[in-house]
Design a protein around this nucleic acid. Structure first.
Lengths: 344, 344
DNA sequence: CTGTTAGCGCCTTCAT
DNA sequence: ATGAAGGCGCTAACAG
């Protein structure tokens, strides 16, 4: 491979002129710059990554930690990794994928070896070790997801609280007074995966605040049958249903309801909220308040690059406002008598 | 961050001793090695990636090119990227994800800058530019997928030809004489995405060879309705169906058949073959001849590491034998009269 | 505006 | 078995 010396000789200039001509970090006469660029193109020259990293103390690489758990939704996970990668390339950064079971190992290693200039953290837990690491190491880090203690951190995420409230409000506005929530698996909540918890809390709080009846269930597998059964047992006159759950559970909900003689959306209005998948191809497409992976990742990478390239690294938490996709799966029953009303 | 000098001072030895003690590349007295290791641990020392790369001319990074097309099945795609990453870590390599639209750009760049020691190529086309690049550049490359001209290349893939034959044979053995194939979208075949083509050709050839009737359709979207209609129009007495198609199309096949009053597997025996998704959670789980992403990636990475670390880079093509997962979706109709037989 | 040069931190050959 | 020292290729002061 050609080195900077080869280019310098070919162009008849010094190596620093080559370096500057190609990086644009200082002004160069158009004529000499053109000579250099021509020589570089001729020789297929690109600066060697390792030498550049060592001299500039910059790798132009971003790491992405995406630990895998037994209950990890791999497609959702990788969707984020993909979007981070796309966003990073816009800023001329490459992306290193860290999927080791041990979440901190990769983070520690890329930081200590200066392999990556910064790191994007996915699948954040309420008490995430990586939050402490980021604080202690002072390594440029951005979280997609929000740990409980955000002090000193840069975080980006969908505003799950607002999403939960939006789902409830939409159903309430349509006259629903008894609403079920299908949440995530118990073990997902138990390891304090953050966004299901935030959604859950906001849902119950807001449901209490607006004074409706509700029930929450946690699927044990990939089917909606059992959760729906349980929901209808505890909340027999349920007319609204919020899905903050996996694609598999959501997809089988229509059938599970049908087994109770209920059809969506005529009998039960359904909203999928805080989910990465699309319901557009479901038998019955449900209104959706999506997690916009692209938006989250673009924002997160933007923040990280800002810290890296412009030193703007003040701690901050950016909440992305939820949006509502209407497929008509919420039916208005405002005129129907409230089934929870006491019969006198 | 601590440097090798710090460790050398702390351990009271020279830096070369530190380097060798930690890399194990030459014999060191147990006592001094322990001293060095203790000092390194004390200082949280890890060799800086860039310096190590520059000096050793090795990055310990593998690149993965996974170009995205409009019709790319992202989850399937990323599944491979994930498995490559996991496999690479077993050999102490990190993984760089290349998802630029321009497939060759990333490959060229990582090679020219020596950012990655080698590269894993995904989503291979019959006439893939990256194959020519690999031959010309002589850059350590392994293909997961098989281009038409494999000369000088290292390739790994499921034996799609064998998979297609296996599917046909299984149906024929069960007495089916009229078999449909739902393939991929036309545009996928048109850009010569390799494995759908290989499957298709092997299917038709083998069907001809064993003398059965068959028809092939190409879905235009994500639903099985139209393809199934077309299939039943051209092959009205079809009793066997092979799915070498997307998860969405496969998932909606049962319903599409039902709309013709046909139920799987009683009326139509179905096999999903050469697919990355699982049918285990389908309403009717179909027998499956899976693409084992893990096996392909582990093998591919093994080959690449072998070339990198042991110089064993002879061209070769490794075909992974297909396996059959039986969910009981093929019904035996050997005793049933052949509906294609002429009524005299 | 351009050239000279001192490192960046580590690996590895050569010497002992 | 250990140490000394020369690069690896590039960037960014420092000179001019």
């Amino acid at each position: 491979m050609a080195t900077i010396d080869d280019v310098a000789k070919a162009a008849g200039v010094s190596i620093s002129t080559v370096s500057y001509a190609l990086s644009g970090k200082r002004s160069i006469t158009a004529a000499t710059r053109d000579k250099v660029i021509a020589a570089a193109a001729e020789l297929d020259y690109l600066p060697q990554a390792s030498a550049r990293m060592l001299a500039a103390n910059r790798s132009h690489i971003l790491a992405v930690t995406a630990p895998l758990h037994a209950d990890t939704d791999e497609p959702a996970h990788m969707k984020f990794a993909l979007e981070v990668t796309k966003a990073a390339r816009e800023f001329d950064y490459d992306t290193l994928l860290l999927v080791h079971d041990d979440a901190v190992e990769g983070m520690r290693r890329t930081a200590a070896t200066a392999l990556a200039d910064g790191i994007v953290v996915l699948d954040v837990n309420a008490h995430d070790e990586r939050a402490d690491l980021a604080r202690r190491f002072g390594y440029p880090t951005v979280f997609i997801g929000i740990p409980e203690n955000t002090e000193g951190l840069m975080c980006v995420d969908l505003d799950f609280e607002a999403a939960a409230r939006m789902a409830v409000d939409r159903l309430v506005a349509a006259g629903h007074r008894a609403i079920g929530l299908i949440s995530h698996e118990r073990r997902t909540l138990e390891r304090e995966s953050n966004f299901p918890l935030r959604f859950l809390h906001a849902f119950t709080q807001h449901a209490d605040a607006v004074g409706i009846e509700y029930a929450v269930v946690y699927p044990a597998g990939h089917k909606a049958g059992a959760p729906v059964d349980e929901l209808l047992r505890t909340l027999p006159h349920m007319t609204g249903l919020v899905l903050n759950t996996s694609a598999d559970v959501a997809r089988t909900t229509t059938r599970a309801l049908a087994e109770h003689g209920l059809s969506a959306p005529e009998d039960i209005s359904v909203i999928a909220a805080g989910v990465t998948f699309s319901t557009a191809r479901f038998v019955v497409p449900y209104d959706t308040i999506p997690i916009d992976a692209r938006a989250s990742c673009t924002t997160a990478v933007g923040i990280l690059i800002d810290a890296l390239d412009h030193g703007r690294s003040e701690p901050r938490t950016v909440l992305i406002a939820p949006t509502y996709i209407d497929y008509g799966s919420v039916h208005n029953r405002a005129s129907v008598p409230d089934p929870t009303a006491q019969v006198s």
